[in-house]
């Protein structure tokens, strides 16, 4: 057993407390830029959780897209719409009480649901950010007669990339092709293309919306 295994609880609790605490602070604070800052910490903590789970690609993309892109957008939005130097809009305490009560109710329902699931153990050889090479993933990515070092070294990043390019890496299911029953793995080329088109649409839409003319009295 690798000694890294013992690190997991410590790392998990540290990162989880930071993430959860920052998420709560994000809700509680009135100042919108502070709220965005707490959200930044929560997002960074979430990417830490992803790294802890061995999904380093997802963690890095999370940092790149959220922290480097979305958060900047949010703060830009705050700056462009702020009348005072540090805006804060207060919510009445009645609304607070109702929302927090509803939130706690939702959390308790979710907690009960979570406690009902079994306790699945991770696949063998699981350590923090050190996953054992999985032959199931590497197969189909290697040409015959050559050992793919990259694939065995980074099963997830490689497989995700291949999946987006149309190589079957998803869950296997049986399919009848030409009267012969073969095992087919799902690939993710179509979602990838849809997301690309979606991004383009969002880009054009955002540019169109933001181009609308300012009313004169709004330009403070």
């Amino acid at each position: 057993m690798s000694p890294f295994t013992n690190l997991e609880p410590f790392l998990f609790w540290t990162i989880a407390c930071i993430t959860g605490g920052c998420a709560i602070a994000c809700v509680v604070t009135h100042n919108i830029v502070r709220s965005a800052t707490w959200l930044l910490f929560a997002l960074a903590g979430t990417s830490g959780i992803f790294f802890l789970l061995g999904a380093d690609l997802v963690g890095a993309i999370q940092l790149l897209v959220y922290v480097g892109g979305t958060m900047i957008l949010v703060v830009f939005g705050v700056m462009l719409t702020a009348q005072g130097p540090f805006i804060s809009m207060r919510t009445s305490s009645g609304e607070w009480a109702v929302s927090v009560a509803a939130g706690l109710l939702l959390l308790s329902v979710l907690s009960v649901a979570i406690s009902k699931i079994g306790k699945p153990t991770p696949p063998s050889g699981s350590t923090v950010a050190q996953y054992a090479p999985k032959t199931t993933l590497a197969e189909g990515m290697t040409k015959e007669g050559e050992t793919n070092e990259v694939a065995s070294k980074s099963p997830y990043s490689m497989a995700i990339g291949q999946g987006f390019l149309g190589v079957g890496v998803g869950p296997a299911h049986k399919e009848t092709v030409n009267g012969k029953e073969t095992v087919v793995r799902a690939s993710y080329l179509l979602p990838f293309e849809i997301v690309s088109v979606h991004l383009l649409v969002a880009l054009i839409g955002a540019a169109y919306l933001a181009r609308a003319k300012r009313r004169k009295e709004a330009a403070v």
Binding site: A16, A23, E95, S99, L110, S111
Partner: peptide, 27 residues
């Protein structure tokens, strides 16, 4: 275990819902 991560996810989710409900600023 899995449930710890799920609980963290649930906490984030609930925080988000409460945030959506209480914030008056569109951002």
């Amino acid at each position: 275990g899995l449930e710890h991560y799920l609980f963290l996810g649930a906490l984030l989710f609930v925080c988000g819902v409460v945030c959506m409900a209480t914030k008056r600023n569109a951002i």
